[in-house]
């Protein structure tokens, strides 16, 4: 082994430590290779083949970019992408805004802190599909809590889950409720790093609470907000469980996301080739969005202010 790091200056002790270090890293590399790199490579390979489990006699011929040309003209893919984009646009800022409120609340000097913190953690710990099922019951036409409330205040019930607009709204409410707690946890950690002395100084200068929030809290919290936005966006691209449980993409395909379309193509229709192509496309979009965010965060967020 030769390289820029392997110089003759290294003592034998250093060299053996280096070897040990590499040996200790190997299991992690092997694991990553096995669960990340290999599946991605297999997925990309499969996306260039025809692979329908419903027609095993067709074997799995290599068909080049045929699946990709098909995807370009696939109206359902564009619809699903559009729905996914809408979910991102609405639920990412929604969850971070609600999460900010929750974090500010949890950061108040309550005597007993655990009830608020537990309330923060519970939605986060709940499996996504449970959240979906709970909200489906809330929004159900006949037995749903929301319609009961509407009737109680004298309005007529709404078909929440079987009309495009209301179904989208109901799903967004469920996603924002479910994911805001994660944003709140990240933001709460950020809030607690802001030195108290800043507020004390502002207090002395006579700054109002609102100005303290705008001039101290928000700028100091910016790194945490960006982290919350990144993580929320990455999960929002993959939105699946909640719309699956609430509407299964209905009415028609009006609330279907990209991940749901991939699932339907692969698992329901057993078209692994085309399903893989769709998954590769989603992976590319996801990778681009993530790298844009990462580039943005690599700059020191405090650099601009000095």
């Amino acid at each position: 082994m030769t390289g820029p790091f392997m110089t003759a200056k290294l003592s034998s002790l250093e060299r053996s430590e280096r070897r040990l270090g590499i040996a200790l890293l190997m299991p992690a590399f092997a694991l990553l290779g096995g669960v990340v790199l290999y599946p991605i490579a297999a997925l990309i390979r499969m996306s260039f083949s025809e692979n329908k489990l419903t027609e095993p006699w067709m074997a799995k011929p290599w068909i080049g970019f045929e699946n990709y040309w098909k995807a370009l003209g696939d109206h359902r893919l564009w619809e699903a992408s559009w729905h996914t984009a809408l979910y991102i646009i609405v639920t990412v800022p929604g969850a971070v805004a609600l999460g900010l409120g929750l974090a500010l609340l949890a950061n108040q000097p309550f005597k007993v802190k655990w009830p608020v913190r537990l309330g923060l953690l519970l939605p986060w710990a709940l499996p996504l599909v449970f959240a979906g099922l709970i909200f489906r019951w809330f929004f159900e036409y006949q037995q749903g809590l929301v319609n009961n409330l509407l009737i109680w205040i004298g309005l007529s019930p709404v078909n929440w889950l079987t009309q495009e607009g209301p179904a989208f709204f109901a799903i967004c409410v469920a996603i924002i409720w479910k994911t805001s707690s994660f944003a709140a946890l990240v933001l709460l950690a950020g809030l607690q790093t802001i030195p108290k002395s800043l507020y004390e100084a502002a207090e002395v200068d006579g700054a109002s609470k609102w100005n303290q929030f705008r001039e101290i809290t928000l700028p100091m919290l910016k790194p945490a907000i960006i982290v919350a936005l990144i993580f929320r966006t990455i999960t929002a691209i993959q939105t699946f469980d909640i719309p699956k449980a609430m509407t299964d993409g209905g009415p028609g395909n009006a609330t279907e996301t990209l991940a749901m379309y991939i699932h339907k193509t692969t698992i329901d229709s057993l078209d692994f080739g085309y399903g893989s192509t769709l998954a590769v496309l989603m992976f590319i979009v996801s990778a681009i969005l993530t790298s844009i965010y990462l580039r943005h965060t690599r700059r020191d967020p405090s650099a601009g202010r000095h």
């Binding site: 079987t162 009309q163 209905g250 009415p251 028609g252 395909n253 009006a254 339907k264 329901d268």
Partner: peptide, 14 residues
């Protein structure tokens, strides 16, 4: 899937 999805969309009025 094609039949039930379209029928569902029609019955929903969408």
């Amino acid at each position: 899937e094609v039949i039930r999805t379209n029928m569902n969309a029609f019955l929903a009025g969408s």
